[in-house]
Design a protein around this nucleic acid. Structure first.
Length: 282
DNA sequence: AGCCAGGGTCTGC
DNA sequence: GCAGACCATGGC
């Protein structure tokens, strides 16, 4: 386990001596689009229809206004806290490139997001940039998500998105992805696309099932399986990961790390995008 | 101003 | 199977 003890402190929960968890790198590395930095090492976001603000003080991770029940029910899983990242990062460091990447961007965990949110988010992500993706998703939630109080909205349900008109979705800025979102929401709502089996379906079959959805190709399918279903052996190959593979792994990605390729990819993606000279943009 | 963005579809070879 | 046009939009 990566943390020694969970204690209540007033209405907060404190995870003492948390290791291998860099809040900023994890919440702002292109895997989730719903988190905002309030200050250094202090973030606010929404997942599973719950608001959460959390902060890192010294070696302690503090979840504000969270009950132990909610922690066990939602956040332990969401932040993948039951996985031993210490052991995993040690394993990664056996690879020279990953050792450099981890030095540059330590503590990136792969979040376990809700399947339908991941499905929609990464349809929206295609041929798009992260800043604009965040804006579109924020507007989508405000327009169609459950109101949680204040300016907080849950990610919309399949019902809500399937019922949205084309013009409403276009006004949000979805552009040509409008039809893709509508189709995906309708498929999930009708049961034509059953998400639950994707947790356990064989890899090839799971990828093919998602690729059968209009607007989903191999890259988006891998993102949905990795971020929405914790299928950490999937490596989404966008332009950055293609550069990484071509330039840093000409002989192929290490076979022994393949079972955690999706987690390794997240560190490498952040490294390639943010470390000057890590990869060439040609 | 023009290129690019965590791509996919469709058409034509 | 692969190449290229095309897709909406706005960040930078």
């Amino acid at each position: 386990m990566d943390y020694s003890a969970i204690k209540a402190r007033g209405s907060d929960l404190v995870l003492h001596d948390i290791q291998n968890f860099n809040l900023g790198n994890t919440l702002d590395c292109g895997q989730s689009f719903r988190w905002k930095m309030l200050a250094e090492n202090r973030y606010y976001g929404i997942a599973h229809s719950r608001e959460l603000s959390l902060s890192l003080e010294d070696e302690n991770l503090i979840l504000h206004d969270v009950t132990p029940y909610e922690f066990e029910k939602i956040w332990r899983g969401y932040f993948d806290l039951s996985r031993d990242y210490g052991e995993l990062f040690t394993r990664f460091r056996g690879d020279n490139t990953l050792a450099h990447a981890l030095d540059f961007a330590p503590g990136i965990r792969v979040l376990r997001q809700e399947p339908f949110e991941a499905l929609c988010s990464f349809i929206i992500s295609q041929n798009n940039n992260i800043t604009r993706i965040k804006g579109i998703i924020a507007r989508l939630c405000a327009a169609f998500g459950e109101h949680l109080g204040g300016e907080a909205y849950a990610f919309p349900t399949p019902q809500a998105l399937a019922a949205a008109t084309e013009q409403q979705l276009r006004d949000i800025g979805l552009g040509y992805r409008t039809a893709y979102i509508t189709a995906a929401a309708q498929e999930v709502l009708s049961g034509k696309l059953d998400l639950n089996p994707l947790y356990i379906m064989p890899p090839k079959q799971a990828g093919e099932r998602l690729c059968a959805v209009h607007g989903i190709g191999k890259k988006v399918a891998a993102c949905v399986l990795l971020y929405g279903f914790a299928r950490v052996d999937f490596i989404p190959e966008d332009v950055w990961v293609k550069r990484i593979m071509a330039q840093l792994y000409p002989a192929g990605f290490p076979q022994e790390l393949a079972p955690w390729g999706g987690i390794a990819q997240q560190t490498l993606f952040h490294y390639a995008r943010n470390c000057e000279g890590a990869v060439e943009k040609t």
